[in-house]
Structures are given as C-alpha cells and as structure tokens.
Design a binder for these strands. Sequence first.
DNA 1: AGGGAGGGTCGAAGCGCTTCGACTTCTGTT
DNA 2: AACAGAAGTCGAAGCGCTTCGACCCTCCCT
Lengths: 335, 335
Amino acid sequence: MVTIAEVARRAGVSPSTVSYVLSGKRAISTETRERVRRSIHELGYHPNAGARALAGNRSHVIALMMPLRTDMYLPVMMEIALAVATTARTHGYDVLLLTGEEGAAAVRRIADSASADALILMDVELDDERLPLLDEIAPPAVLIGQPADPAGLTCVDLDFAAAGARCVAHLAELGHREIALIGEAPAVYARHTGFAERTLQGARAAARELGVRMLHRPTEGSYDAMAAQITRIFDERPGTTGLVVQNEAVVEPLLSLLRQQGRAVPEDISVVAICPEQVAAQASVRLTSVALPAQEMGRRAVERVVDRLEGREHRPLDLLAPHLTDRASSGPAPV
Amino acid sequence: MVTIAEVARRAGVSPSTVSYVLSGKRAISTETRERVRRSIHELGYHPNAGARALAGNRSHVIALMMPLRTDMYLPVMMEIALAVATTARTHGYDVLLLTGEEGAAAVRRIADSASADALILMDVELDDERLPLLDEIAPPAVLIGQPADPAGLTCVDLDFAAAGARCVAHLAELGHREIALIGEAPAVYARHTGFAERTLQGARAAARELGVRMLHRPTEGSYDAMAAQITRIFDERPGTTGLVVQNEAVVEPLLSLLRQQGRAVPEDISVVAICPEQVAAQASVRLTSVALPAQEMGRRAVERVVDRLEGREHRPLDLLAPHLTDRASSGPAPV
DNA sequence: AGGGAGGGTCGAAGCGCTTCGACTTCTGTT
DNA sequence: AACAGAAGTCGAAGCGCTTCGACCCTCCCT
C-alpha cells in the first residue's frame, strides 16, 4: 500500500507538504507542487479513506437514503441515484446507498459514526419519520421532494403545481374544454403524497382560470383498473377530449385501450403525460409530456449539499420549472 | 461526539475492553459485557467509521459498481442494488454506489484508498475493461453476470440457458410445435451479451431435442419495431402458436398488438416471458414467465462477498435455477 | 502444595492522514 | 541597511479505534 510518506520521500519533501499539495490549503511553490504531483502519479497514490476521514474530520461521502416505500418509481429512483453518484464524484465525493428499511435509525447511525458528510433523502413523505432527526444531527441534509412543512429544510423538487397547470393550459390552448386527470393510485392521495396533491391543485386552478371542466380520477396501476376507469370517464363526460396522465404504469394500457375503442390519438382525444422523457418517447404513441427531470433533481441535490458543505449561500427551496415537450399525442380539439 | 473512551469510562472499564465487547474477539465476562452494552446503548454510541477503518484495516463497506452501459434495465438494476444494500446491512456492511462512468479507474481508486472491503460488479460485459484489474487489487470481487472467461472469478447469475430451455419445454409440453423467440435488440446480440446468447443457446437446444421449430427474432424495444416484427413472424410462419419474449420493453406492445389482430392469448397463441415477476404479474394479461430474480441475485452476491471476506469456502459460480410460474398467458396449442 | 492453563482485563503502540505552530527564506519597504 | 510580512516548508501532535503483549486471577491437575 502506498502511503503519503512514500510519496513525500520520492518527491524529497515532508508528508505535510504532500498533504498541502493535495488540499491546496497552503501555498506551495510551483516546482515543489509539480514534483509532488509527479510522485503521486508515478506511485498511483490514493489517500487512505479511513485515515483521511479520521484526521480531516470529513469522510468525503454523501449518504443517499432511499424512500421508506420502494414499491414504485424504481426507474426514476435509479436515475436520480445515478445522477447523484456521478455528480458527487465531480465534487470529490462518493455515495453511500442506504435503503429505507433501516428507517430513522440509519440517519442516527450515519451521523454518529461520521460515515457521511451530508445526507440526501429521496422521495420524502409528508410526515416523514426521519425529518425530526435532521435537526439533531451534525451533517446537513437535502431533501428530494417536499414534506408537509419544509421550514428550515433544504428541498429540491419539480414544481408539480406548475406542471399540472402547464398540462391543462396546453390542452386549453388547443381548444379542449372537457378534460380528465388520470392520477396515481387512490392510496397515494389518501396518504397526501406531496407531488400528487400539488399536481392536482395546480391543474384545478388552471382549469378554473381557463374555463375548462376537469375530472380527477385516481387510478390503480393495472390494465384492468385503467379499462374500468376509461369507461367511467366517457360515461360520465362523453364530451371529454383531453387527458392528463400522471401514472407511469397506466400509460401504455391507456393507449392500448383507446386504440381498441377506436378513439384516435390525437385526432379524437389528446393525451398529455407527466412522466420521464424516456417513457414518453418510447410509448406506442410519442407522448406530449412534462418531463420528470430525475437526473436534474439528483444533480441539484448534490449541488445544494456541496453548497452547504462549503459554507456557500443558497436558497432552501429549489423548485424546477416544468418543461412541456409537444409530441404526437396532443392536437386541436375535434369540432 | 461520543467516543469509545466515554463508553468505557461510564462502564468502568478500559477502551480496549469495549472494543472487545464490540468485536467479540476476546472473551469478556457476562457481567462486564452487559455493563458495556448498557453504556453503549445509553450513550447512543456508534464507532467512528474512519477510525475503525484505519485501525482495523477494514472499512465495513462493499462497493457496488454499476454497469458501464446504463441505457437499460434500470428497474432491474435498482432492485439488485436495493437487495445488495439491505443484505449488506444484515452483515454489518454499508454500500458505496459507483457509476460505470469512472470505468476501470474506479476499481483502482477504491482499492488503493481502501474505501471498500470488497467489490460487486453489476452486469459485467463479456470483455469488461474492469476485469483484468480485479487480479491486481486486494479487495475480493464478485460479479453479477458472467464474462466471456469466468475463470478465477466469482460470479452470480441466473442460469439463462436453462431459462431459455424451460420456456421452450413449457410450450412443447402444451403441444406447441412452432414457436418464436422475441429477443433483445439486435445490438445486444451483436456485442455478444452473455445472458442473451445463453438464453438463445438453451432455447435452441431444447427446441431441437423436443422437436419444436423455433424462430429467433431480435427486436428493438419500441412499439413500432414490435409491430413490424409480429407481422414478419406470422408471414414467415403462419403456424406459430407460441412466443417466448425476452425483452421487457416490448411485452405490453406485443400483447396490445395481439389483441388488435384478434389473436386471443392464450387460446390462439401462448406467450411466455423472461422478465421480473412484477412485469409479468402487472401486464395486461398475467404472463406465464420465468422470473428474473433481481433481489435474489443481489442477496447472493453479498453472501458470496461475505463468504470470501470471512475466509469461508464457496463455489465460484453461483447459477440460479430458473423458476417458471404458470399464469394466464399460456395454454394448450390450438388444434 | 506447586505449576500450568486459560479467562478476563488493561496499557500502549500504532493505523495514515491533517493541521498547527514554528522556522527559514525571500520580497518590498522605508 | 534594516525590517515587516509573505511565501514555502517541516516536525509533531493528534483524530478514535484495534490489537498485541502483559498481567493478574482462578481453577484444575499431578
């Protein structure tokens, strides 16, 4: 194992000088710096992580905590996780992956053992059990998603209210006057999940303002549930010409059902989705959609973390503006 | 911050005794042990990770390296990652998440800095650039998936050859005589991806043995590609009554297309998939399938790692037997 | 009764790094 | 010409833990 002492010896300097070259915390002459750099490179030196953490009191690790419920959105979570990991690396951090299984205990453990310099909590629930702990621990935390009371917390999230409004506005602009919002499963609303409720509020407000009638229909994520739902919607509001979908699992079933019923997209009915770009682009009809910017959220979360670790100022709430991409699933309302 | 010294003082023993209670490496009287345990609990003590790693020469961390190409299988990867993380915790390890982006350099860095006690490489490619490095580094590695030459490496994988054979055998038993294997995208075969080729080989061998004609059709993961493919298959082999699908992305498009064409599943045509249980169970027709046991693979990979870290013996190749679940998409061949 | 063998505990020596204070040059002033 | 201050480097003191060797008991054997 190569140590800092060996690097120092080969460069003809003391270990502390090597350390200062590495950290840049003291001025080092160009000549010495280059000699040390060469020595590091030639020996393939990488500082021992444990020793560095112990002496420097910083682990250079960011802990990424998965949501308590991992029953859905696996692809989105994965995208966020990968973005967090790659962004973290560009700032010199590694990422520790924690599952929701340990719950709040994991927060304690990581903080007490100084295993990480900061925490990123994914998909925070409205009354997340881990939140109260966040005040008591030393490492700063950044949330992806918004809890009921975000006061004093740093959050990164898509502006779901604006996203809902944007979808409705898009349909309204195309002349649609009766639309339906096909949402997440009823259970998701029942537990007042932040993003689902905010989307709904934003959509409702926009509908009201733009003079559009809107039905809200939470839908279970299965083909059969979608089939039952679509029937109900057209029974209740035969004039419906626009659909907003916020439920990845029923996107393809929905399109399939519309085809079966002989309703052409977008000629007879327009569909706008709130989902990852990939889902929208690969669906059987290329979907007009507001993107769920998973990577961007991961990246920003890391940036907020690094801001705080380096004592920089930053706003506590980082809300991403929704971006709607017009694809093949939406068009003018039929006359 | 609570240190081992404080725990020791409160328990009226020396720090080394506390350490021995924690590690169990020396005999401690029941009485002392209990006193120390109580002290630990009351103070909420968690050993400093850096200090422990430095002194003990083990980080209690397992590095999980993502595949070089992360363009597909995000949900499966996520499932594996979560299983790895939770299993690791039951053995006292945390998981460091590394993206493929850094490539082989990450292997070096983690090994040299002693950031992890072992590596798990996901979705290894046939000629993975990281493999040669594995011999040169200290921490043991376990692969999920099989490279071209698995000699000297520890691998965990589903027995894809057996999985392919099992699907064919299932259809043969139901009386099907002409079947097609709808596979991954052509590019996947072009780069000789292990799991795809093995599945094909197993399926072919079984077909030959059981007197079944089998067509192999690599298919791009889009609705349009699937539509074109299904037309070709029935043009070429109108007598086809069974399909094996190994391509998550086209499962739902396929079912939708069959419906549109008025082909009933399973009355007119049987479908068997190789995919995660969730996909099979939530499809618009509940699919007979061989499960892709993502969690099991993650779990086993960690167990192989722990075996090696604790010097236990274990076989280098851990091939999971495929398990076929009979659901609603397969039935007797039509007469 | 004496000695060997464990069992149980402690003190101290590091593990490899960062950082503080101190020391030695080298500037640029007056 | 003398000196303040900056620039550049070093030595040594830890960071909190594990582990080795040493020590002291108690017990059992001969």
